[in-house]
Computed example of a mutant assay.
Amino acid sequence: MTDSNHIVVQEVAGKVALVTGAASGIGRAIALLLHDRGAKVIAEDINPAVEKLARPGLVPLLADITEDGAAERAAGLAIEHFGRLDILVNNAG
């Protein structure tokens, strides 16, 4: 691992992230990468495929981010499961 990669891993390790649009493509890749680098992740998507991402430290949330209150529920889930929210990846299209 190069020094710059090591720094990035240290920056996200132990953080809590919320990734919208996480069921596929870039959002899925980001959610998995953050998790692999030590972050706890809430992976949100309207697509039920998001549920396949479930594992310790990665909590899927089936939701439509455009609905009233959806953002508050997602942030609340992060706080409920992990005690805080540090990173937001607003990837939903």
Rank of each mutant, 00 (worst) to 15 (best):
R37S: 12
G69H: 10
I65H: 07
I46S: 12
L88F: 08
N47H: 14
R55V: 02
D86M: 08
R73F: 03
L18H: 00
S4E: 12
S4V: 10
I42D: 13
A43G: 04
L53I: 06
D86T: 05
R84Y: 03
T2W: 03
E80R: 15
V41H: 00
N47A: 13
G93C: 07
A31N: 12
K15F: 01
I42T: 07
T20L: 09
I87P: 00
L77Q: 06
S4Q: 13
A22E: 04
V9H: 09
G93F: 04
N5P: 01
D86K: 03
T66H: 02
I87F: 02
L85C: 04
F82C: 02
I26R: 08
N90Q: 04
A31L: 10
I65C: 06
S4R: 14
A39M: 10
D86C: 03
A74R: 06
E72M: 09
K52C: 06
V12I: 12
R84W: 05
I65T: 08
K15R: 15
A23F: 04
L18N: 04
D3K: 12
D36M: 03
R37A: 11
E72H: 09
S4A: 14
D68M: 09
N91T: 07
G21A: 07
A92K: 05
L85N: 03
D45N: 13
P56T: 01
V9F: 06
P48A: 11
L33N: 08
D45M: 12
H35I: 00
T20C: 07
E51K: 15
T66L: 08
V50D: 01
T2F: 09
H35Y: 01
I30N: 00
A71E: 11
E67M: 09
E80Y: 09
N5D: 13
V50L: 12
S24H: 08
A75Q: 11
K52Y: 04
L88M: 11
H6R: 14
I7M: 14
D68K: 13
V9T: 15
K15N: 03
I79Q: 15
A39L: 09
A63E: 12
H6K: 14
A54Y: 01
I42N: 13
G69E: 11
G93N: 05
D36Y: 03
P48C: 13
G25W: 08
S24N: 06
K40H: 13
H6N: 12
A74W: 01
I46R: 15
E51N: 15
D3L: 15
E44C: 13
V12Y: 06
G25P: 04
N5M: 14
P48Y: 06
D86Q: 05
A49G: 11
A54S: 14
K40N: 14
A17H: 04
I79E: 15
S4G: 04
L58W: 02
H35S: 01
L58P: 03
A22M: 08
G83L: 00
G27L: 10
L62S: 09
A54I: 11
G21R: 00
D45L: 13
E51R: 14
T2G: 15
V50H: 01
V19G: 02
A63F: 02
K15T: 02
R73G: 01
K40M: 11
A92N: 07
N91G: 06
V8Y: 12
A22N: 03
E72V: 11
A70K: 02
V8K: 13
D3P: 10
I26D: 08
